[in-house]
Design a protein around this nucleic acid. Sequence first.
DNA 1: GCCTAGGTCCCGTTA
DNA 2: TAACGGGGCCTAGGC
Lengths: 305, 305
Amino acid sequence: MATPPTSGGGWPAPGPSAPSSAPRKERSPGRCGGSTPPAGRSSTQSRPGGAFKRPTPLPRGVPSDESPAGVRTLTAPDAASAAALVTDGLGADALVALFGRCTVDYEGRAASELGPGDRHVMLKPDGAALVHTDEGQQPVNWQPPGCEHDCRATEGATVVESRRTSPEESLVVRFSTVAHAAAFDVSDHETPEVIGTEADLKRRILEEPSLVEDGFTPLATERKTPAGAVDVYGEDDAGRTVVLELKRRRVGPDAVGQLDRYVGALRRDLHADAEVRGVLVAPSVTGRARALLAERGLEFVPLTP
Amino acid sequence: MATPPTSGGGWPAPGPSAPSSAPRKERSPGRCGGSTPPAGRSSTQSRPGGAFKRPTPLPRGVPSDESPAGVRTLTAPDAASAAALVTDGLGADALVALFGRCTVDYEGRAASELGPGDRHVMLKPDGAALVHTDEGQQPVNWQPPGCEHDCRATEGATVVESRRTSPEESLVVRFSTVAHAAAFDVSDHETPEVIGTEADLKRRILEEPSLVEDGFTPLATERKTPAGAVDVYGEDDAGRTVVLELKRRRVGPDAVGQLDRYVGALRRDLHADAEVRGVLVAPSVTGRARALLAERGLEFVPLTP
DNA sequence: GCCTAGGTCCCGTTA
DNA sequence: TAACGGGGCCTAGGC
């Protein structure tokens, strides 16, 4: 059987050379000097920049056992078929996943090379790209949202490039073989509700200031100082200025430094006779952080979001 | 057709109730109080803790057009089939991907809820879990490596749970429908070569110390101080102690605070008459950082990795 | 665009 | 194990 098996077919098939919805940009030939065979050519660009918005409802195929809505897959496709799936998928704002043996090259803020291995590559319609191995939460290579994805078949390889400007960065994934390719029609309008953030800690304190100390009165949040915005600004029962720095988890020396900068800036900014107290509010502190607090004359109040 | 279409079959099929290689741990029933139908029951645990090592070569099926090595997929499976694929895949150290409509609940260091939507879920054999939407480089929900994955079919839903201890954390993904499921046999022994890190900057300076200033002599790297380890420790042509803090990119006030802590610690640690200079080495500094440098009597040398 | 700080940050290294 | 700092950090919110 020469044709690779395919399951799904959620969208009207526009064929490999269908024009992308984004304006086609002429592109110089890749680093594989020779000309690309027209049969295997296929590319698309996602919308550039951060303006990611779905323009129209996605075309959905008739759901059925073999081609459910919003999924198109290919197993062990040839390079041209894989590139076509990627191109068509991205053109329809689908999330595209590729799995197979590949190399990865990145150049931009830094540069990196990754030799051949089996990896999972995800291309998102907002321009993000992720290369995952079997280990780690973090992708081994990636590209942030705002890139233009491009996929083409070149000399038997399936090549994905995700590129952006400012900063100029490029990620190139070369698949010698694609074991599996899939395009998913994603719809997700939900935003997660998260509990236990620093914002929750702030809310708790504003509702019940005595959690910090008896007589504490919050006067402002995010109050601006020459050193930056202070989490909570207020005064104690003796009328002294109090600066709170809030952290949702156990803190180290960096948080003390942050608080110290705010306190220093306010001491310089307010009247010369103004007394300014700095209070770090967090579940706990490390040893060095505690020593640094003492050294700088700052205080600590244990509190958990 | 009642049976969902399947492509691949890379492993010997051990059936949905095959015991996992990891020791089975008795588990209390999930929040769906009732008993789980045995037909749909299927679960696995990945190896706990960080000790992720492949014990034996993965069983690979005979490659062919329809079942290439290392890939098993199901399109629009019922819950039991999806759970079986996940369980078998994880049992064989495969990387598992699920796509479909789901809700996500997380509880641990924080807590979150995410309503129904189409998402891509990746389960790694090292215990990591990632839930991706169509936007953003970051997963909307996740679990770090070291978790035990568990997948079962419960009342028509495919439920994935990734759990770890210390800290106690649980991520539960409930699929009302799985549009596509895949298990990938990953082999990746490569580590990326990255250029342009802070380590490169350090190497450059050690090779050519005059890049910092004429007469600078490095004496140690990672020299310990009560405030932490200093990037580069040395002396200038006048014999004064010099502390370098290196950054690969433009720095803000936090890096100045870091350098300031090291300089302070050394001034206290060394002889009372010792003069200590602090030098921040980075491509550039922000305005506030520059002001803070001046305020603390610290210096800046522009240098790019 | 830059700047500032948060994050369920993750991650490696070391004591 | 905790702690400390790096990261191509990413991401949100101001300005």
